[in-house]
């Protein structure tokens, strides 16, 4: 009887471990990133095993400039990429069809010149990092992207708990201070869009909104908050995000 019990437990264990490794061992997700401190969350997520925690197998692909990264995204050699927001928005306005699903690091101007001249910060804003995906995805796209975004949010949480992680992933020696925020923030992107004067009269009024997929970030954050409702970092991020509220009762007798 005892042997049967142990054997059953062993079989259940084998089955469960198979399910888990199957989830983590699905098809490879190629995530491009710019060699830029603002893209550090992508590398921290790999270092801390956050992708695997979310059941994703991610290969990081390094790019030295945003244009070549966006070209790879368009060609389909990478599935998503962490590139400069200014270049990303220009590509969207140019009809590339990319969508922004998350934010990253935004350089912050410091020093006396920054205080005197707003244009310094404006230029830095455009070099902030966002996560872009191609125009359309296949079946299961939303779930994969939600997991990817959740991994980046978890990386952000790790970076808050261990600031040395960010220092270890910084690029160059004389970098401005980087403010990290995984929230894509449509309204911030709209301000940059207007500043770059990218809106064309031929675009519909919701053209930019159609290229900012905030629902992914909101779903990822909801999921993380559900698993850790008292987590201060997740609560802080939730407080900043503008998400469509959950509205609905379960449709069953209760």
């Amino acid at each position: 009887m005892n042997r049967l019990f142990v054997l059953t437990l062993f079989m259940v264990g084998v089955l469960l471990s198979g399910v888990k490794s199957g989830e983590a061992g699905g098809s490879l997700f190629r995530l491009g990133y710019l060699e830029h401190t603002g893209a550090a969350l992508c590398r921290i997520a790999q270092l801390k095993g956050e992708y695997a925690q979310e059941g994703l197998k991610v290969e990081l692909v390094r790019f030295s400039d945003s244009r070549s990264g966006l070209a790879a995204l368009e060609q389909g050699t990478i599935h998503a990429g962490a590139f400069e927001v200014g270049e990303g928005l220009k590509a969207i306005a140019g009809g590339k069809g990319f969508r922004i699903i998350a934010g990253g690091g935004i350089p912050t101007a410091t020093g006396p010149l920054a205080e005197l001249d707003d244009r310094v910060q404006q230029r830095l804003d455009l070099s902030g990092i966002v996560i872009l995906i191609p125009a359309t995805g296949g079946a299961g796209e939303k779930e994969t992207l939600t997991r990817l975004t959740a991994a980046l949010v978890r990386a952000y949480r790790s970076s808050r708990a261990e600031p040395e992680l960010l220092r270890s992933k910084s690029v160059g020696t004389d970098q401005p201070i980087i403010h990290f925020d995984p929230y894509p923030d449509y309204y911030r992107l709209e301000r940059l869009w207007k500043r770059l004067d990218l809106h064309s009269s031929t675009f519909p009024p919701d053209f930019l909104a159609n290229h900012v997929y905030e629902e992914i970030y909101c779903d990822a954050l909801d999921r993380l908050l559900d698993s850790a409702p008292d987590d201060n970092v997740y609560k802080e991020l939730s407080g900043k995000a503008v998400c469509v509220p959950d509205c609905c009762p379960k449709n069953k007798k209760q």
Binding site: Y186, P204, P205, D206, L208, A209, V242, V244, P245, C247
Partner: peptide, 16 residues
């Protein structure tokens, strides 16, 4: 019918 906030958020982002 999907609440009041949700349509307002969509409209404020340009949805017609």
């Amino acid at each position: 019918t999907f609440g009041t906030t949700a349509p307002l958020l969509f409209i404020s982002k340009g949805s017609e």
